[in-house]
């Protein structure tokens, strides 16, 4: 196996020079996202550096409890981020979204790491953390889209919800069109990605493995598995998030609670 070529700090800094092009474009077109872009870049560097630092220790330690706590922290951050980006209030949604994240990761890690890859030690940091992270990262993006669609439409089209609540035959059915729309909007981008993967995009994990010296065949098998895990994880997470959030978002008369949304 070939050794991967390390990137020096100087080369890394050179990479940042490329950012001059989009930022110059933003300034030229007067798009007010320069500040946000710079802040996001700085955050990315700090967060990834910290992660690299932590992961060095976590991989060396490889303790099941530490690894599980690490993944739980990722789940919680994901839940907080979803709530914030969807414009919802923390007190109603943190519990359902955290539980959905936890259950989806539990099912996926148990299935893929335990039954499919047959790891002797399921909590092995080298597999458990990156695979959980990849699933959670993708689930986060698609959850934000799906959840924003769901509660956004419910807020905007409450007349339809209340109309169906009386004229339909159950609360479940009156929510059905909103749930269908949320699931479609959340998962459609992922279906589109899956259908063109390999044609117009080479996914990060596969590229990383090939750069790391794995054979393309091994990398592809891992990539197929991870895409399956991502799709299943996103689907479970989104559907569970909606179902569990419904228990907190409505009162006992089926009315949408007034303070679900941040002012």
């Amino acid at each position: 196996m070939k050794e991967i070529v390390d990137i020096g700090i100087g080369s890394l800094a050179l990479g940042f020079l490329l950012m001059i092009i989009p930022i110059a474009g933003f300034i030229y077109f007067k798009v007010k996202i320069v500040k946000e872009t710079v802040i996001a870049l700085i955050r990315m560097v700090i967060q990834l550096s910290l992660v690299a630092f932590y992961l060095e220790y976590i991989f060396a330690w490889n303790n099941a409890w530490v690894n599980v706590i690490w993944v739980c922290v990722m789940i919680l951050v994901g839940a907080f981020t979803t709530i914030k980006r969807a414009g919802l209030t923390y007190r109603f949604f943190i519990l359902p979204f955290a539980i959905s994240g936890f259950i989806s990761i539990l099912i996926l890690d148990a299935f893929f790491l335990g039954f499919v890859i047959h790891l002797d030690y399921v909590f092995d940091a080298r597999y458990f953390i990156p695979i959980s992270g990849m699933v959670l990262g993708n689930a986060l993006n698609h959850n934000i889209v799906g959840i924003s669609n769901y509660f956004g439409r419910l807020a905007k089209e409450q007349d339809l919800y209340y109309f169906l609540l009386v004229n339909g035959d159950s609360r479940k059915n009156s929510l059905a069109p909103f749930i269908r729309s949320a699931i479609k909007s959340g998962l459609n981008p992922l279906i589109a990605t899956m259908s063109v993967i390999g044609l117009i995009s080479l996914p990060g994990m596969m590229t990383g493995q090939i750069l790391g010296g794995s054979s393309p065949m091994v990398a592809i098998k891992y990539q197929i598995l991870i895409m399956l895990a991502i799709f299943v994880g996103c689907s479970i997470n989104l559907m569970l998030s909606i179902l569990l959030a419904n228990r907190f978002a409505f009162d006992s008369f089926g009315r949408i609670k007034a303070n679900l949304f941040k002012k």
Binding site: D159, L160, N167, D169, F253, G254
Partner: peptide, 29 residues
């Protein structure tokens, strides 16, 4: 409340529902 609502129909004011056709309405119901 669920049993009571199942005895009722309600025509809202203006019927400004986000529905595009009679078929969609029958599907939703």
């Amino acid at each position: 409340i669920a049993a009571i609502r199942n005895k009722m129909i309600w025509l809202p004011q203006n019927s400004n529902l986000p529905v595009d056709s009679a078929n969609e309405l029958s599907d939703l119901l």
